[in-house]
Design a protein around this nucleic acid. Structure first.
Lengths: 132, 132
DNA sequence: TGTTGACCTTATAGTCACTATAAGGTGTTA
DNA sequence: TAACACCTTATAGTGACTATAAGGTCAACA
């Protein structure tokens, strides 16, 4: 399979596949005589794993850690659990931050009723006052 | 006031102030004979406005738009309201995305009980399976 | 035979909002 | 004279791609 076919199959850009290869996330593929990359089943599976991780918002560095685990199937999986717990905590903190922001924005939004001159706009005034 | 004093007062790095100047967000300051930047009250106020916007997660491009409004105080403020509404919508969609992710991660986390070999780890298996 | 077209290759730069580093000039104090 | 804190500019790095350029490969069609 060439890079374009793999890309279409997995729903990514060919550039992204080359990028993952350069980053060491995908094993270097064999080449045809003309230099074209050729991919097999294993590449597809590895790419699927990477894309699954990316959908979970895991960073490339975290994916690398998980790949090390995958290559050592007889080791204990505690590191994987820890990595996921840390990630869950990070997502929760992102949500908390955004919810606080949402609250602030709602308050700010109420400072204006859409139909004033800029000089009287409560939103602009509210921003200028700073955080509180 | 020199750049270091302004930076300490506003709680930012001097580099950030120079960066905002380069980006056209802060007016170019006067210079002393030795080339040092000097800042007055207006610069402080403009920087405060920028930092207020950044705390709200507004992009530099959005800040530029708001600055244009600020310079035209007799225009109607509808554009400001619209900008804020769009931003609120974006924050809400980010929250929704993260909450869906949180749900997914919670399900995934339950697939393993912390004390297995990598080969039996439900988390790793769950990621490999892809989105569903 | 020529040429179109879809595909592949590498290399480089851009995104965003900074942050870090390097290499050097200025000005006050010891 | 030297140490020190401060200032200057220029350049590169962050993360995960995305876009662009300039060119090579190969099958099909006129």
């Amino acid at each position: 399979m060439r890079i374009g076919q793999l890309a279409r199959k997995m729903g990514v850009d060919t550039q992204t596949i080359r990028f993952y290869e350069k980053e060491g996330l995908l094993p270097t593929p064999d080449r045809q005589k003309n230099g074209y990359r050729t991919y097999g089943k294993k590449h597809g599976e590895e790419l699927a794993f990477i894309l699954g991780c990316r959908l979970l918002n895991l960073s490339l560095s975290e994916i690398r850690q998980l790949q090390v685990c995958r290559k050592n199937p007889h080791q204990p999986c505690a590191a994987i659990n820890t990595l996921l717990d840390d990630h869950i905590a990070r997502v929760q903190s992102q949500i908390a931050t955004l919810e606080a922001l949402q609250q602030q924005l709602a308050v700010l939004r109420k400072q204006c009723d859409d139909d004033r001159a800029v000089a009287e706009c409560g939103i602009l005034a509210g921003i200028g006052e700073g955080p509180r």
